[in-house]
Design a binder for these strands. Structure first.
Lengths: 340, 340
DNA sequence: TGCAGTCATGTAACCGGTTACGGACGGTCT
DNA sequence: AGACCGTCCGTAACCGGTTACATGACTGCA
């Protein structure tokens, strides 16, 4: 039994396809008796409208494309979850396509979305903007998440990485740290760059005269471990660590502790993101409400699709410093709040 | 500038739409000169084929529907990641739709997918099968993940929860536990039920004569904490805990430790899932390779779409016991391997 | 020269919906 | 009776692709 179409229903209800369409879509210019016949026929045939055909003729797909890099557990999960929540609230589907790092997959993925989504959410913290601009069909509404730069022509939503980094450094200095090491993220990543930038600015401001210390990393836990080993072999007076993300902070924390270094007494540690694990390890960090970013991104895109005008094009999500055990003694939690 | 269509390209290249289609799709019955003209015209117009129209006429969408309950962080993330990886490898998109617990959303979501996906992956550990069967368009290939029962007519993939539970209990008994408490998951959840079932069977087998102890939970961390508080107020000789998932195990672990109970010396603890955090808390658990399940599910569904016949309809994923600190002293790791 | 066969191309039907337009019908008002 | 209006419904065009079939040009061969 092939899938029933609207014409089958029409035949069965002895009306035209137009009437079927009208009846099923609740238009009011249909006699009640006709509507009933149509509905009955549809049920008997198990008719389900063909969404693809519908969206072709309406030129409206009720779907949003989501193009993400191959990112890690929590971030991916939370982002998509937030998006999905808002999307289903607004009656949209999410069409997912990971754009693996290979790069040239991005244009392909974007092209393949044309004609099946009404708008697109792109997260590409490492893709050069001109490439993005070129790959995005210019007529397809898009919203950029953490794009490397704020393309003036495209709305975007970003994390205020500098503000987060500054808050973290301010806090570390506040509890007495002076020689603070920054474990950086990958250079091509915009978040990583901004966090480093924030670190430098904050050091200049809150710890003037103390020279910044950088350890290159890649957002992976191993980088944090490497940084820790480096410190263990030559401490250089480091009494504080600010990692560009939680995973590196955790790698560092675990390795230092395993080597008997007292955290936070000898070295205080802060991360960035507030992954769920951070709470368990009592890691001080800059909380980024990822799901919220996803929701907000979808909400803004859908608003635009539905014709609502936007006041602000480039939004910034403010991270929130969460002080925990790795920067505060067991009962000195509130000390941190007053610090500095 | 409205989006260019194939007819625009045809006009510009001074050929028919048929030739454009042939040229761009790489059919060989096109003169090279014509193909070049078409490609040039397409580039000049920035032509991107309309995937919706294409899939309508080919009756093939190159997309898979994914219907998931509103599940938690890691699980969701890993599952979708695995699916996405395999899907993009096979040239398919993923169309996501969380079916929130409200229940009657499921049929709606499934209906809306008709005509825009070629097949569907459904994860519904709590939806009664007859409802599923009724909601699934019978012509749409579907693969069930952790469905409450194995619907004989639908291929499925499941976790072998009983095997996992048995391995955990066997291990706990092996290291000397006798009075083992099971913190159960929600009753309507099939995984939870099977894990409890496995617990009972394993107790009967490995600890005969010792009566099983059940604490009702809901997969949330708080349930583990409640179980711990219960134990703290009346220990009843409990020397081992097997939680139906890691989050409850973690809640229990943290609460017991906070109260000064020595883990694993006084009470050993094992969980289920192996969420990333488990490693950091050194939690013994039954590892479920979630991403692998997602990959496998997509692979099987795509195989079927492409006409490959299936030998096994109902597959079971085998969890793997990972022994860590919550059931073994610092240097007694391998002891566990020999235990019993 | 005429005919079959090959190749490139165009015409139009089709996928499954939506909807502009117009026709048929019945009622109301002058 | 005739003009006018409103309601309900059917015909057919359309969304943007693919493709079966027809057409015409060209080749090779008798």
């Amino acid at each position: 039994m092939a899938e029933a179409t609207i014409r089958d229903v029409a035949r069965r209800a002895k009306v035209s396809v137009a009437s079927v369409s009208r009846a099923l879509n609740g238009l009011n210019n249909v006699r009640q008796a006709t509507r009933d016949r149509v509905i009955a026929a549809a049920n008997e045939l198990g008719y389900v409208p063909h969404a693809g055909a519908r969206s072709l003729s309406l030129s409206r797909a009720n779907a949003l494309g989501v193009v993400l890099p191959d990112l890690h557990g929590e971030f991916f999960s939370e982002l998509v979850r937030g998006m999905d929540r808002e999307a289903s609230r607004r009656g949209y589907f999410l069409l997912l396509s990971n754009m693996h790092a290979e790069g040239d997959q991005a244009p392909t993925a974007l092209r393949a979305m044309h004609g099946r989504v009404d708008g697109i959410l792109v997260m590409a913290p490492h893709v050069p903007p001109e490439m993005l601009e070129q790959a995005l069909p210019s007529t397809l509404p898009a919203l950029l998440i953490n794009a490397p730069v704020e393309v003036p022509t495209r709305p975007s939503i970003r994390i205020d990485n500098e503000a987060g980094a500054q808050a973290a450094i301010r806090h570390l200095v506040g509890i007495g740290c002076r020689r603070i090491l920054h474990i950086a993220g990958p250079e091509e990543n915009i978040d990583a760059r901004e966090r480093a930038e924030g670190y430098f600015k904050a050091m200049a401001r809150y710890a003037p005269g103390i020279e910044p210390l950088l350890f290159p990393g890649n957002f992976e836990e191993e980088a944090g471990e490497a940084a820790a080993r480096d410190m263990l072999s030559d401490r250089r007076g480091v009494d504080g660590v600010f990692a560009a993300n939680d995973m590196m902070a955790i790698g560092c924390l675990q390795t230092l502790r395993a080597a008997g270094v007292q955290v936070p007494d000898e070295v205080a540690i802060a991360g960035f993101d507030d992954v769920p694990m951070a709470r368990y390890l009592s890691l001080t960090t800059c909380r980024v409400r990822i799901a919220e970013i996803g929701e907000r991104a979808v909400a803004r895109l859908v608003d635009r699709l539905e014709g609502k005008i936007e006041r602000v094009l480039n939004e910034r999500h403010q991270p929130e410093l969460v002080v925990r055990g790795t920067t505060a003694g067991a009962n000195s939690d509130e000390m941190a709040e007053h610090g500095l």
